[in-house]
């Protein structure tokens, strides 16, 4: 009896081992961590945000269903300013961080630059620093003091000194300079490695056909690095709309005077954590989610890379 039973368990065990080792089961076991992660730390939080955005809380009373009340409440100056600043920032950083690194990478790749290796490493170093450390520099280099670095530069150029972090326009300038400083080198490296995979005879035959450097750049270089341009655009949009840390380090607060450094994420943060208005902050989160999704879909549609990449 017992022998038979243990034989059965042994059989079952072997069956289980075989099951766990089958090629049809193993990939699911390997992928399980991502599935669990996705459900708990991605899908659930998004659904929860959606739910919270429909509830309002007054004082210590439990949250009450309030429909789209929070979304209507988003129609306020603070949030609209935050959206405007995030959009402007994204646009400006894209306008600089997509073409300029391509030109620099092209120069590095052409072999006409002396000490190209040293330049590349120097350009890359900002990507290694924390926003806090870099923010410290930008906060005090753009100080209102007449002799601070950028006011000294202004004086050198014959321009009036500025109280940089006290007005919206100059604050945007500081934020864009900050972002370009940090990501220029990484984008140069992205483009550079893409440029290196272009076969040299492509340029050679173009040269024989009489194409000058500019024409080669337009007709060979840009089409060849199309995928990289799309990638850089994607991460720039992502980084632009999710920007918060830079503004936070410059002002040392999520809420900035006159909302000159407000971003969508700083709005979420200050409403959620400083004012405990989770409903309103969640509504802002859902709006940001929709903005990012729409931009990504438009961009994937226009670049028609969707079918290729997936």
């Amino acid at each position: 009896m017992t022998g038979k039973a243990s034989g059965r368990t042994a059989h079952a065990q072997r069956g289980l081992a075989q099951f766990l080792n089958s090629k049809n089961v193993v990939p699911y076991i390997f992928a399980a961590p991502f599935i669990v992660f996705f459900l708990i730390f991605f899908l659930y939080p998004i659904l929860y945000t959606g739910q919270m955005s429909l509830f309002s809380q007054r004082g210590f009373a439990p949250p009450q269903f309030s429909g789209f009340f929070n979304y209507q409440q988003l129609n306020n100056d603070y949030f609209l300013t935050a959206c405007k600043i995030s959009a402007q920032y994204t646009l400006l950083t894209c306008l600089i961080l997509i073409p300029v690194p391509l030109v620099l990478a092209n120069m590095l790749n052409s072999g006409s630059v002396k000490q190209a290796g040293v330049m590349k490493s120097a350009l890359f170093i900002p990507a290694l620093t924390s926003v806090v450390m870099a923010g410290l520099f930008f906060r005090y280099a753009f100080s209102a003091n007449q002799d601070a670095i950028f006011n000294a530069v202004m004086r050198f150029l014959g321009l009036p000194p500025q109280d940089w972090l006290a007005q919206q326009g100059t604050t945007m300038f500081v934020l864009v300079v900050f972002c370009c400083w940090k990501w220029m080198g990484v984008n140069v490296v992205y483009y550079y490695s893409a440029l290196q995979s272009i076969p040299a005879d492509l340029f050679e035959s173009a040269r024989i056909d009489g194409a000058n450097a500019f024409k080669q750049f337009i007709y060979i270089t840009i089409p060849s690095v199309r995928q990289t341009i799309i990638y850089v655009l994607t991460i720039s949009i992502y980084g632009g709309f999710s920007m918060f840390a830079e503004s936070f380090t410059l002002f040392n607060s999520a809420r900035t005077p006159g909302d000159i450094g407000a971003t969508v994420v700083s709005y979420i943060y200050s409403q959620g954590f400083n004012r405990n208005n989770f409903g309103l902050a969640s509504a802002a989160g859902i709006v940001l989610l929709l903005i990012v999704l729409i931009i990504n879909i438009i961009q994937l549609y226009f670049t028609k890379s969707f079918s290729k990449e997936v």
Partner: peptide
């Protein structure tokens, strides 16, 4: 594709 900053409240 989705910035993690959107999820800071529910994750908290």
């Amino acid at each position: 594709m989705i910035p993690i900053e959107i999820l800071i409240l529910p994750l908290y």
